[in-house]
């Protein structure tokens, strides 16, 4: 029974992994894989139902939806990965420094985090875009600035707890320098929960990029991006609901795939479970 359910779990992780790999492939090689030019307007063929030429049909300007989805993967997922890398980097360095050093530096860095945490994410993002102007880079910056403090806080909390462990004391007594202690003994305990959190947030951040683009603040039309596509299709929702469904489905699938992958990653990083499987 247990074996069956664990096989099931790893099966679903494999599916999620394949799906995520597919999305990454689309993001990398999108323009080569797209069957049509995603920007080619053909007003004679607008609102076509799915057919053999346009597998997912065409939008209100006669552009091929499948091609736009494929090319849009790069913008949406690429920006999310950049956001994630920056947020994790900032969170780990600020939170790690605050937790390891402690004292006044800790207090100072945490008050800085509080400043960012007191302003609601979306309001901060809107403010940043208002100050910096619209565009994908500014959207990325806005999302990073409104999210890093959460990660810094979580990392600091984990570090504070881990650094009181006996094995950290043992490493100190053995003469290990602080940076080595952080990398060898503290970081391995921080990464699994952080990886789970980050993969959960991939979906959240994709929705942010899509959402800000949907409001017309991020990626500008006619660049294909999933949020922009939903925004474009909104006007025709009651007559052509499929135009909203396709990019919505792409976002949902990507979010699901990365979430499941995150769960699998967390399990994979836990040595107790590795030993159960391996020995």
């Amino acid at each position: 029974m247990i074996a069956a359910s664990s096989a099931n779990r790893s099966g679903s992780v494999a599916v999620a992994g394949a799906l995520a790999a597919g999305f990454v492939l689309l993001a990398l090689a999108g323009p080569l894989l797209a069957p049509h030019d995603p920007l080619a307007v053909d007003l004679a063929r607008r609102f076509e139902a799915p057919n053999l030429v346009h597998l997912l049909g065409t939008d209100h300007l006669g552009r091929d939806i499948l091609s736009r989805l494929i090319v849009g993967a790069r913008t949406t997922l690429g920006s999310v990965l950049v956001v994630l890398a920056l947020v994790l980097g900032l969170g780990l360095s600020v939170g790690g420094l605050a937790g390891m050093v402690g004292g006044r530096l800790d207090a100072g860095l945490m008050r800085l985090c509080d400043v960012f945490l007191t302003v609601p994410t979306f309001v901060l993002a809107l403010f940043m875009i208002g100050a910096l102007g619209t565009g994908l880079v500014n959207v990325v910056m806005a999302i990073v600035l409104s999210h890093w403090a959460w990660y810094a806080r979580i990392v600091r909390g984990l570090v504070l707890e881990l650094k009181t462990r006996d094995y950290v004391l043992a490493a100190r007594i053995a003469g290990a320098p602080p940076l080595a202690i952080f990398v060898e003994h503290v970081l391995p305990g921080v990464v699994p929960p952080l990886a789970a959190l980050a993969t959960l947030d991939i979906g959240h951040m994709a929705l942010h990029v899509a959402g800000l683009s949907f409001l017309g603040l991020g990626v500008q039309p006619p660049t294909p991006e999933w949020g922009v596509m939903i925004n474009d299709a909104r006007a025709f929702f009651w007559t052509r609901p499929l135009l909203v469904v396709w990019p919505g489905l792409a976002i949902a699938l990507a979010v699901l795939a990365f979430n499941r992958l995150g769960d699998g990653l967390r399990d994979r990083l836990d040595p107790t479970l590795i030993a159960e499987r391996g020995l």
Binding site: D166, I173, P271
Partner: peptide, 12 residues
Amino acid sequence: LQAPRTAFNPLR
């Protein structure tokens, strides 16, 4: 150290 159980990093 006194407690060998906690003196090792459980992840290594």
